[in-house]
Lab assay of single mutants.
Amino acid sequence: STAGKIFRAMYDYMAADADEVSFKDGDAIINVQAIDEGWMYGTVQRTGRTGMLPANYVEAI
């Protein structure tokens, strides 16, 4: 389960779609929910934006 875990971005990511979020390497991602194998839903702490993000760009900390 991803509940209550904080994730950290390992790479920069530029949102490719309106429902995705952009983030930079080192950003903390909070309130994360796993959607499926490849995608998560969460909030980028630095920007306050919430949306979909690729699971392979982040790691649990």
Score class of each variant (00 low, 15 high):
Ser1Glu: 12
Ser1Phe: 12
Ser1Thr: 07
Ser1Ala: 15
Thr2Ile: 10
Ala3Asn: 13
Ala3Arg: 11
Ala3Thr: 13
Ala3Asp: 10
Ala3Gln: 15
Ala3Leu: 05
Gly4Pro: 10
Gly4Ser: 10
Gly4Lys: 11
Gly4Gln: 09
Gly4Asn: 11
Gly4Val: 08
Gly4Trp: 01
Gly4Met: 09
Lys5Ala: 11
Lys5Ile: 12
Lys5Trp: 11
Lys5Leu: 12
Lys5Arg: 09
Ile6Ala: 09
Ile6Asp: 08
Ile6Glu: 12
Ile6Gln: 12
Ile6Trp: 06
Phe7Trp: 12
Phe7Ala: 08
Phe7Thr: 06
Phe7Met: 06
Phe7Gln: 03
Phe7Ile: 01
Ala9Phe: 00
Ala9Ser: 01
Ala9Glu: 02
Ala9Gly: 04
Met10Gln: 06
Met10Ile: 11
Met10Lys: 13
Met10Ser: 08
Met10Pro: 00
Met10Asn: 09
Tyr11Met: 13
Tyr11Ser: 13
Tyr11Ala: 14
Tyr11Ile: 05
Tyr11Lys: 15
Tyr11Pro: 00
Tyr11Asn: 15
Tyr11His: 15
Tyr11Asp: 12
Tyr11Leu: 09
Asp12Lys: 03
Tyr13Thr: 04
Tyr13Trp: 03
Tyr13Cys: 02
Tyr13Glu: 01
Met14Pro: 03
Met14Leu: 12
Met14Arg: 12
Met14Gly: 05
Ala15Thr: 01
Ala15Ser: 04
Ala15Gly: 08
Ala15Tyr: 09
Ala15Pro: 08
Ala15Asn: 06
Ala16Asp: 08
Ala16Pro: 06
Ala16Gly: 09
Ala16Met: 14
Ala16Lys: 15
Ala16Val: 12
Asp17Pro: 00
Asp17Cys: 06
Ala18Tyr: 10
Ala18Gln: 13
Ala18Trp: 06
Ala18Met: 09
Ala18Leu: 10
Asp19Tyr: 09
Asp19Arg: 13
Asp19Lys: 14
Asp19Glu: 03
Asp19Ser: 14
Asp19Val: 04
Glu20Gln: 14
Glu20Val: 00
Glu20Ser: 10
Glu20Ile: 04
Glu20Ala: 05
Val21Thr: 06
Val21Lys: 05
Val21Glu: 04
Val21Ile: 09
Ser22Asp: 08
Ser22Asn: 05
Ser22Ile: 05
Ser22Phe: 02
Phe23Leu: 07
Phe23Lys: 07
Phe23Trp: 08
Phe23Gln: 04
Phe23His: 02
Phe23Ser: 08
Phe23Arg: 01
Phe23Thr: 06
Phe23Met: 08
Lys24Met: 10
Lys24Val: 11
Lys24Asp: 02
Lys24Ala: 10
Lys24Glu: 08
Lys24Thr: 07
Lys24Arg: 12
Asp25Tyr: 10
Asp25Ala: 15
Asp25Thr: 15
Asp25His: 14
Asp25Cys: 15
Asp25Gly: 13
Gly26Arg: 01
Gly26Val: 02
Asp27Gln: 02
Asp27Tyr: 15
Asp27Trp: 00
Asp27Pro: 01
Asp27Leu: 00
Asp27Arg: 00
Asp27His: 00
Asp27Glu: 07
Ala28Met: 15
Ala28Phe: 15
Ala28Glu: 14
Ile29Asp: 01
Ile29Ser: 07
Ile29Asn: 06
Ile29Lys: 03
Ile29Trp: 00
Ile29Met: 03
Ile29Phe: 03
Ile30Asn: 08
Ile30Ala: 09
Ile30Tyr: 10
Ile30Leu: 10
Ile30Gln: 09
Asn31Asp: 10
Asn31Leu: 07
Asn31Ile: 04
Asn31Val: 04
Asn31His: 00
Asn31Arg: 06
Asn31Gly: 11
Asn31Trp: 04
Val32Met: 05
Val32Trp: 03
Val32Ile: 06
Val32Thr: 09
Val32Ala: 12
Gln33Ser: 14
Gln33Thr: 14
Gln33Arg: 13
Gln33Gly: 06
Gln33Phe: 11
Ala34Asn: 13
Ala34Gln: 15
Ala34His: 14
Ala34Phe: 10
Ile35Leu: 14
Ile35His: 09
Ile35Val: 13
Ile35Ala: 11
Ile35Met: 14
Asp36Glu: 10
Asp36Phe: 10
Asp36Trp: 04
Glu37Ala: 10
Glu37Thr: 07
Glu37Val: 12
Glu37Leu: 04
Glu37Gln: 13
Glu37Ile: 11
Gly38Asp: 14
Gly38Glu: 13
Gly38Tyr: 14
Gly38His: 15
Gly38Leu: 11
Gly38Arg: 14
Trp39Phe: 07
Trp39Arg: 11
Met40His: 11
Met40Cys: 11
Met40Leu: 13
Met40Glu: 01
Tyr41Lys: 14
Tyr41Ala: 05
Tyr41Gln: 11
Tyr41Trp: 13
Tyr41Gly: 05
Tyr41Met: 14
Tyr41Phe: 12
Tyr41Arg: 13
Tyr41Ser: 13
Tyr41Thr: 09
Gly42Trp: 02
Gly42Gln: 08
Gly42Met: 00
Gly42Ala: 03
Gly42Ser: 00
Gly42Val: 01
Gly42Asn: 00
Thr43Val: 02
Thr43Met: 06
Thr43Glu: 03
Thr43Ser: 04
Thr43Gly: 05
Val44Gln: 02
Val44Met: 00
Val44Lys: 04
Val44Pro: 05
Gln45Pro: 06
Gln45Ala: 13
Gln45His: 09
Gln45Lys: 12
Gln45Tyr: 09
Arg46Tyr: 01
Arg46Ser: 10
Arg46Gln: 05
Thr47Met: 05
Thr47Cys: 05
Thr47Pro: 03
Thr47Ser: 06
Thr47Ala: 02
Gly48Asp: 08
Gly48Lys: 06
Gly48Cys: 05
Gly48Arg: 07
Gly48Met: 00
Arg49Asn: 11
Arg49Ser: 13
Arg49Lys: 14
Arg49Asp: 05
Arg49Gly: 07
Thr50Asn: 05
Thr50Arg: 12
Thr50His: 11
Thr50Asp: 04
Thr50Leu: 00
Gly51Phe: 00
Gly51Leu: 01
Gly51Val: 03
Gly51Asp: 02
Gly51Thr: 01
Gly51Lys: 04
Gly51Trp: 03
Met52Ala: 08
Met52Ser: 02
Met52Pro: 02
Met52Gln: 08
Met52Glu: 04
Leu53Ser: 02
Leu53Lys: 02
Leu53Thr: 02
Leu53Gly: 02
Leu53Glu: 04
Pro54Trp: 02
Pro54Met: 06
Pro54Leu: 01
Pro54Glu: 01
Ala55Gln: 02
Ala55Pro: 04
Ala55Thr: 07
Ala55Lys: 01
Ala55Ser: 12
Ala55Ile: 11
Ala55Asn: 09
Asn56Thr: 13
Asn56Asp: 08
Asn56Cys: 09
Asn56Glu: 10
Asn56Trp: 07
Asn56Leu: 05
Asn56Gly: 10
Tyr57Asp: 00
Tyr57Ala: 14
Tyr57His: 08
Tyr57Phe: 11
Tyr57Met: 14
Tyr57Arg: 10
Tyr57Asn: 03
Val58Tyr: 04
Val58Gly: 05
Val58His: 07
Val58Lys: 00
Val58Ala: 04
Val58Leu: 11
Val58Asp: 07
Val58Gln: 02
Val58Phe: 03
Val58Ile: 12
Val58Pro: 06
Val58Ser: 05
Glu59Tyr: 00
Glu59Ser: 12
Glu59Gly: 08
Glu59His: 14
Glu59Thr: 10
Glu59Trp: 00
Glu59Pro: 03
Glu59Ala: 08
Ala60Cys: 14
Ala60Phe: 06
Ala60Gly: 09
Ala60Asn: 06
Ile61Tyr: 10
Ile61Gln: 14
Ile61Thr: 13
Ile61Met: 13
Ile61Phe: 10
Ile61His: 11
Ile61Pro: 09
Ile61Asn: 09
